[in-house]
């Protein structure tokens, strides 16, 4: 095809035209090439990191979406599990934790509630509740199971104690056995005195203990302060040994034998004298 004369003229004249660039153009070109290589290298090196970041982002986003989708089902499932639990376990708020023993009562606990040792039992219950509440926060079902097992064991022990001829009162027996268990759960330091009492299983002492506890229970009925005394009596058996000594001296006095008032620790005559003096004053 024949070329137009205008096109031919310009093409011939301009084909070999040269315009020299400035000298700094080459430096500019080199600088741009270096930056581009760095950028390309940077991307090449950052690619795996970016991919890893992207994958992790996708995973996190997926987990968030999954958890959002799953959360209603979980709550439903949680409710279902709560419903499947026995009603006594279902309605146990943290604030009403002191109802746990009464709600989960069996015959042994009911018997305990009716005994004159009710005040001592309350102390035991309080300790049990204190040990149960923190477990309840972490796991709802576990403490209940433990408590039921404890109760079962206490029942078994109570039955065994009932079979023994030494214990006349069946209601007292589970108290005495259950107490060391609860103390052992709470504080191991108070466990050692209990073993001491076991060592002192003399017939006289047993009688004295039972008698003292009976006396205490009578006093506790009248005075609410005796609760502390009962706790002290049980938790501090050294005093009970002293009481045994006192009881021994009283027996000596009753039998007309010599009474060692130093063994007792006080002289009733002096106390009586002081009391009468105060009344007179």
């Amino acid at each position: 095809m024949k070329k137009h004369p205008t096109d031919k003229f310009f093409a011939e004249k301009l084909k070999e035209v040269e315009i020299k660039p400035r000298p700094e153009a080459w430096d500019k070109l080199q600088m741009r090439m270096q930056t581009k290589q760095r950028r390309v290298g940077g991307w090449w090196h950052q690619g795996p990191w970016l991919a890893a970041a992207g994958v992790s982002l996708v995973l996190v986003a997926g987990w968030v979406v999954w958890s959002l989708n799953q959360s209603p089902e979980l709550t439903v499932a949680h409710k279902e599990t709560k419903k499947s639990m026995p009603p006594q376990e279902q309605t146990i708020p943290q604030g009403e934790a002191n109802k746990i023993p009464s709600a989960t009562d069996n015959d042994a606990i009911a018997a305990l509630a009716e005994t004159p040792k009710k005040t001592i039992d309350k102390g035991v219950e309080k300790r049990k509740i204190k040990s149960v509440i923190p477990q309840k926060d972490s796991q709802l079902s576990q403490p209940r199971v433990l408590e039921s097992s404890e109760l079962q064991s206490s029942q078994e022990v109570a039955i065994n104690e009932n079979k023994t001829p030494e214990r006349g009162n069946a209601n007292i027996a589970p108290i005495k056995i259950e107490q060391p268990q609860s103390i052992a759960q709470n504080s191991p330091t108070t466990h050692q005195p209990v073993t001491k009492t076991v060592v002192l299983q003399l017939p006289e002492l047993k009688e004295s203990l039972v008698a003292s506890s009976q006396v205490e229970s009578n006093v506790e009925k009248q005075n609410s302060d005796s609760e502390d005394f009962g706790d002290n009596l049980l938790s501090k058996p050294r005093k009970s040994t002293r009481m045994a000594k006192v009881w021994q001296q009283l027996k000596n006095a009753k039998n007309g034998e010599k009474v060692d008032w130093e063994e007792v620790g006080f002289n009733p005559n002096k106390v009586l004298a002081k009391a009468t003096g105060k009344n007179e004053n």
């Binding site: 070999e16 035209v17 040269e18 660039p21 070109l29």
Partner: peptide, 15 residues
């Protein structure tokens, strides 16, 4: 390459 062709190629760009 730059030394040989830059002037001609710059003329192309200027056109």
């Amino acid at each position: 390459l730059y030394e040989k062709y830059s002037a001609r190629l710059l003329a192309v760009c200027v056109r």
